[in-house]
């Protein structure tokens, strides 16, 4: 277990399930992992980049700086090394410096932070609208324009064992796999409307960089555009009662052709030929969900 943890940290990348597989990526936690799950959207890549390239160097730098100062005063100004304490209580220059420098650091952080939230919070022109409804304790999904709707619950331990006995290309995972995964097309902007039928839940998929509270009486919105085919997991992220840990989210991202097949198989209808780049979804702009 311990060795496995370290080696997976080193490996880091998403599991590959063999060449030619339609489902290449898996957005799931890795044993012993210390970092984000592998990003599957541009937004999540930006989150990782902001965190790794800006926040981490700054906070590690600050912490190490404070630790170094502490170690220095411990070594240099202990009772043995410095028997007679000095009595100064002010030094205008250093006081100005330790006020101004943090301000500059924070401005730098903000300069990177604001573009990220603009990207996250601005819903682009979207091809598909997905409505997600939290309920105690499962998720209901609906593509209102495609006539597809279904409920997705946790997969029981027995069903996981049964599914994995068939040696599937993507093994079912305890507490993450569902009875009926949500299927989304790769490379399409999906506008997600999130609400709840009862208490507050939160719809979260770590590898998408998406987490949105599902609140009764309001419709929250977010969006994603998945890079590559794969299975991506998430879990309810707002305490919602005893089965809070047992309402997972499983998203299967597939090619557009497979998505169209899935929609038809679900009894829905794909609108004509999906026009490339053409809006065709007026409600994406018209829907003005709660801000």
């Amino acid at each position: 277990m311990k060795r496995g943890a370290l080696s997976t940290i080193a490996a880091g990348a998403a599991a590959i399930f063999g060449a030619g597989s339609a489902l290449a990526a898996e957005g799931a936690p890795t044993p012993g992992g210390v970092h984000f799950q592998e990003p599957a959207t541009a937004v999540m890549r930006d989150i990782v980049s902001f965190h790794d390239n800006w926040l981490m160097p700054i906070i590690v730098g600050v912490s190490v700086f404070v630790l170094a100062l502490l170690l220095w005063v411990i070594v240099r100004f202990n009772r043995r090394a410095n028997p007679t304490p000095r009595k100064f209580t002010h030094n205008l220059l250093v006081e100005v410096i330790w006020t101004i420098v943090p301000v500059i650091i924070l401005v730098v952080i903000a300069s990177q932070s604001f573009p990220l939230i603009i990207k996250e919070e601005t819903i682009p022109q979207s091809e598909y609208t997905l409505k997600v409804t939290g309920r105690s304790w499962s998720w209901a999904y609906e593509y209102p324009d495609l006539g597809v709707s279904f409920t997705s619950s946790i997969l029981s331990d027995e069903d996981i064992a049964a599914r994995n006995a068939g040696d599937p290309e993507v093994p079912a995972r305890r507490l993450l796999s569902t009875t009926e995964p949500l299927v989304v097309p790769v490379g399409a902007n999906v506008h997600v409307l999130v609400t709840s039928e009862d208490v507050i839940h939160a719809w979260a998929v770590p590898s998408f960089g998406v987490k949105e509270d599902a609140i009764m009486g309001r419709v929250n919105e977010t969006w994603f555009n998945v890079d590559s085919p794969g299975v991506y997991y998430g879990q309810c992220s707002e305490l919602c009662g005893k089965d809070h840990a047992f309402m997972p989210i499983e998203v299967r991202a597939v090619s557009r052709a497979e998505f169209a097949e899935w929609v038809v198989a679900q009894g829905g209808t794909m609108p004509g030929a999906p026009a490339v780049g053409a809006g065709g979804e007026p409600e994406a702009a018209a829907a003005a969900p709660t801000r």
Binding site: F50, H51, S63, L70, I109, E120, P206, K211
Partner: peptide, 25 residues
Amino acid sequence: IFLFTVGGVTGVVLANSGVDTSFHD
């Protein structure tokens, strides 16, 4: 002093809602 600094800098991380999307809850 040291541990409060460590907790403080992760607070600055969480202050950024863009990253809090990942860390929230």
